[in-house]
Design a protein around this nucleic acid. Structure first.
Lengths: 154, 154
DNA sequence: CGTTACCCTAGCCCGCTAGTAGGATTTAGC
DNA sequence: GCTAAATCCTACTAGCGGGCTAGGGTAACG
């Protein structure tokens, strides 16, 4: 398993919001929880993460709830997943340095070249991030043209 | 974090074997453990997985050890990772059905269309599997042309 | 002013990861 | 054959993170 249910549930919350966004009326978490069959108390944590990442906006009080912070077309799934799971790294040894590019933990220890495996993990990371940034929330909501056998076999 | 140290250590063992495979003499786990700075007892578990997957062959007794089961060029990294980590699925709800293609857990429950998010996870899964099957062990061992900024920024 | 919702903090349980421990078995070399 | 070097196998464990629950505080609508 690679992503936890945080990503799964959170993405489902986002798609629910995107689909039922008719008027300006916000949607309560409780109704989402019921519709999706997910525990409300847990969703609150995830909603908090989404809000802190400015992906949704909230309105408190009666008839309050959540709405998307911006149009679904402009919400990259990479941002959603990152808000929920934290940085996207396939493995501990690889992480994003301050300058933004990927570094191996033991890079710099003299005589100790970076993991020979760095090439592998950076490629995996790259392909994940690439597919995630190429998709927007709108892609998940579209009338589902169900492009079936587009994926590889395991 | 997506892959555990099982994948990391295991891949390092494989690259170590690929690089130091001069003659027919097998390489002991103890020497690998020392060279890579990894705990021997733990590597034994990983070596067992690699052996059961027919990726390495072992010789017991004095001067025993491990060798690659076949040339590095023919060893796909996807097989290595799968041997170590189990099936490659980005998330619980998606798994490989008996027929080989990906199914959503709650697919089939009537009225309940598959996760609207299935498209997302299958694409992520596809891209991971694709990069992993496109690389062989030989690619990790080559004189490392260090293709630096090929990866995306996080 | 009460109800409806979001918001925050704290904590709990369980399974898995990352090991350790200890022994049994096989082989090479003296 | 004996011994040392190695793989094999099973069992056990500490710790941590995931996946929640609990309980209260706070803003807004009617």
């Amino acid at each position: 398993m690679m992503f936890s249910t945080k990503a799964e549930y959170g993405v489902r919350v986002m798609t629910h919001l995107a689909r039922h966004e008719g008027g300006a009326a916000p949607i309560s978490l409780a109704s989402i929880a019921e519709a999706e069959g997910l525990p409300l108390a847990y969703l609150e944590h995830l909603a908090a993460r989404l809000r802190r990442a400015d992906l949704v906006t909230s309105r408190r009080g009666a008839h309050g709830g959540y709405t998307l912070a911006r149009p679904a077309e402009t919400i990259k799934m990479a941002d959603v997943v990152r808000a929920l799971e934290g940085d996207i790294a396939p493995i501990e040894c690889i992480s994003a340095g301050p300058d933004g590019d990927l570094v191996c933990i033991r890079e710099g220890e003299p005589g100790h070249e970076p993991c020979p495996t760095k090439l592998l993990w950076t490629r995996v990371q790259g392909s994940i991030v690439r597919t995630l940034t190429d998709m927007t929330l709108a892609d998940l909501v579209r009338p589902t043209t169900q492009e079936k056998t587009e994926t590889l076999t395991v």
